[in-house]
């Protein structure tokens, strides 16, 4: 007899679950909240939005004075509004994913949907990093294009120093700061969404192996 047949007999004869659930319990469970991964991606997205917009309230006004001095306030506002519109669009996509993911589909379809979700999250993270990078580059090039502005911001006490040396030092420190912040942001996203997507990724890879999806 096949080895598995022996075990299969044991499987067939296994006792029914002792802790049977009553229909009242089922009713209660059915009406409680789901903890699915896709839902958490949506929730984390909302929390993140609240977090970053919350931080804006704690930014000291003096920062904005600098931007006003540079006549960059309107540009900054345009950026911010555009940014929030795009973030809201992403949140809408996360929400739609959460609604769309219907597990009555077969496993393969489900996994394809998950692949879509993964892509959305990837674009979301990429968008956030790219925006930060772009804004930094734009603002810095505006500041660096004008020596007076640069001096005003970076050397408010008006210490006398060599201009070209000063520009080089400021530029290098700005680039280093940008790299550090981008790395931290990237790690933050990697951590938050990476944890959420880990199991989904593993199962996707497995199913892809089983049935070449492409």
């Amino acid at each position: 007899m096949d080895l598995l047949e022996k075990y299969k007999k044991a499987w067939d004869n296994q006792p029914e679950e002792k802790n049977k659930v009553s229909s009242i319990d089922i009713y209660k469970m059915a009406h409680s909240k789901s903890s699915s991964i896709v839902k958490w991606i949506f929730i984390v997205g909302v929390l993140e939005l609240l977090f970053w917009s919350g931080i804006n309230f704690f930014v000291p006004d003096s920062i904005y004075v600098i931007y006003e001095d540079l006549n960059l306030m309107s540009l900054l506002n345009v950026f911010l509004i555009l940014h929030y519109v795009i973030i809201l669009a992403f949140l809408f996509l996360f929400y739609k994913n959460y609604k769309k993911i219907s597990i009555i589909d077969n496993t393969k379809k489900l996994i394809i949907n998950i692949l879509g979700i993964r892509k959305t999250v990837k674009y979301y993270v990429f968008y956030n990093l790219a925006t930060f990078f772009l804004i930094s580059v734009v603002f810095n090039s505006i500041i660096f294009s004008d020596e007076n502005k640069l001096m005003k911001i970076m050397n408010p006490k008006n210490l006398s120093m060599d201009m070209s040396q000063f520009i080089t030092i400021t530029l290098i420190s700005q680039i280093i700061a940008l790299i550090i912040i981008l790395t931290l942001l990237w790690l933050f996203y990697k951590l938050v969404y990476g944890i959420l997507l880990k199991k989904l990724n593993r199962n996707y890879k497995e199913l892809k192996k089983i049935d070449d999806l492409n």
Partner: peptide, 19 residues
């Protein structure tokens, strides 16, 4: 039959805490 499908798919993909 339907229950097999939904329950298995839940176990395979939509379950967070198992990690």
């Amino acid at each position: 039959t339907w229950m097999y499908r939904v329950a298995l798919n839940t176990a395979i993909s939509l379950y967070r805490k198992s990690t």
